[in-house]
Amino acid sequence: MTILETLTTEEITEIDHEISLVPFRKAAAIEALKVVQQHRGWVSDESLRAIAGHLEISPEELESVATFYNLVFRRPVGRNVILLCDSISCYVMGYQKIYGYIRDRLHISFGETTPDGRFTLLPNACLGTCDHAPALMINNELFRDLTEDRLDEILDGYH
């Protein structure tokens, strides 16, 4: 019944590697969350408890860290996460139009996931590609100089 059982050996190996790089176990907290999210797409309550157990800290202590950051997903996300930049340069260059288009096409607003689990749409602070605004990222891919007419093609590339 140990909580460690819910982490896979692969995850444990990766987390242990991160632990080996820091002076004490809990300093690997963020890295460990990243490892699990990488494998599972998000960090469930059970995963969080398992990671905390492995780091020898309380779920509270880990949750405190996990909920601080924007990109630790504590709720399930779709297979593909769209991060649409809503910061200033993209605002000036009209990200709202892009948002409107995606919303109409996928019928989801910021923070929502399509019923088929294909996409989650999230607002995101500056993607650091302001000279090519507006921009969005889907998973690890960056799309820049967006116009509404390119969106269908972009979205169709993700299943």
Binding site: V22, A27, A28, I30, E31, V65, Y69, N70
Partner: peptide, 27 residues
């Protein structure tokens, strides 16, 4: 030398908050 990637928070860029983030804490 290690490459560490953040998990998203503007405040992580503030140099002392960055230290907390690198320590695996709230930034």
């Amino acid at each position: 030398m290690y490459l560490h990637t953040g998990v998203g928070r503007y405040i992580c860029g503030e140099e002392t908050a960055l230290l907390n983030a690198l320590e695996g804490k709230r930034a």
